[in-house]
Amino acid sequence: ADPCYDEGGAPRGCVPGLVNAALGREVLASSTCGQPATRACDASDPLRAHPATLLTVAGGSASSVCWRSDMLQRVPLNVTLTVALGKAFELVFVSLRFCSAPPASVALLKSQDHGRNWAPLGFFSSHCALDYGRPHAPLDGSGGPGPEALCFPALQAQPDGGGLMAFSVQDGSPPGLDLDSSPVLQDWVTATDIRILLTRPAVPGDTRDLDAIVPYSYSATELQVGGRCKCNGHASRCLLDAQGHLICDCRHGTEGPDCGRCKPFYCDRPWQRATARETHACLACSCNGHARRCRFNMELYRLSGHRSGGVCLNCRHNTAGRHCHYCQEGFYRDPDRSLSDRRACRACDCHPVGAAGKTCNQTTGQCPCKDGVTGLTCNRCALGFQQSRSPVAPCVKTP
C-alpha cells in the first residue's frame, strides 16, 4: 500500500519517517588529532585514531572510541564539525554526545543551500552576551513571535564526565505554530547541512586570555540529526538516484529533489505543499489525449474559481483549443468518434470550385457553398441549377 494514496486510490498527504539524517554521512572536522601522530593519537593507526567518521558511524553510542580534536593551545579555540545531509531535511532535533566535559560554549548552525550560507539555530553558553552577543533565553524556552536562535544555558557535565547537547527545533519556536500552515516554521526547520561550532572549552579561567589556556581538546561521539527527508507532503520515502543523490520518491504529480514542483504535464493548478487537510496534488492537464505538454496560466486559473489553469500546448490530431477540445480550422468533429479519438477531427474537404472557402462548420462539417451549389462539401448543383463552364459561378439556373 502506498501511504500517499488512500484505499480508494485518492491522493493524501504523506511524509517520510523520522531518521537520523547524519547516519553514515561524512563529518568534516576543522581539527582532528593524530596528524602529526602523538603518543595518544595517530591518524594512520586504526587502533589509535580518533577520526570524525566515528561521529556518524552506525552504533556510535556503543563505541568507546571518540572523535578528538587536536590539542588546542592558542586562542581562538574554535573547532567546527560540519555534516552535509545530502538534501533538505525537516529537522526535529540535533544531538551530540561529548566524551569529555562539554564545551562551555557551543553554536549550532544550519545551511539551507548546501553550505553556501549559514544561519544560527541555537547557542549553549554560560556567557551568552559575551560569546554570542545575545541574551539568555527565557526559562520557559519561549522566544519572540517567530522562530529564532536562542541562547540556552551551558551544557552540563554528567556524572561519567561526558555531556550531551540536545537541541530540539521546538526550542526557539513559539508554541502554537503549525508546520502545515506556517511557512516561517517550515523555513526554520529546513536544513541541508548542520554545523556545530565548539567555541570555548570547559576549562577554568578566561579563555580569551592566551596565558590562561592549558592545552585542551574537544572530544565527542554520536552526532544525531533527527529529521524527516523534506518532500513537502508528496512522498513517503527518499531514495538514491542513479548519481547517488538522495531524492524524494515523489507522488501526486510532483517532481524535484523535494517534490517542490509539478511534473511537466501536471500543471492544471499551481504547486502547493500538502497539508493534513488538503493534499494539493498536482493535476494533469485535460488535453483529451491530443497533447503531451501544457503550461499554467494564473489568469485562467483565477477566472475558473481556482479550479483549472492548464493550457495544452501543441495539440495534435488536428485539434485546437485550451484543452484540445475542438477542431482546427479546416476540420470538423466526427460525431461518430469520441473527442479523445485520434481521428475525432475530419478534414472539411470543401470542393475547390463549388465551395466559397476551405473552412467548414466545425460541428456539422458543412462547407460554405457558392450560389446554386449544394452538398456537405459543395460538390453538386442544387435542384433547378446546372453546371456551367465558369469556375466563379459553377452552377447557374436551369433555363
Binding site: V353, N379, R380, F385, Q387, P391, V392
Partner: peptide
C-alpha cells in the same frame, strides 16, 4: 433527385488561371 457531382473537366479556366486548383 441527386444531382451529379461537379465535373472539373467542364470548367474553362482561361480567364481564371490564378484560381485553378492544383490537382
Amino acid at each position: 433527385e441527386v444531382m451529379p457531382t461537379l465535373d472539373m473537366a467542364l470548367f474553362d479556366w482561361t480567364d481564371y488561371e490564378d484560381l485553378k486548383p492544383e490537382v
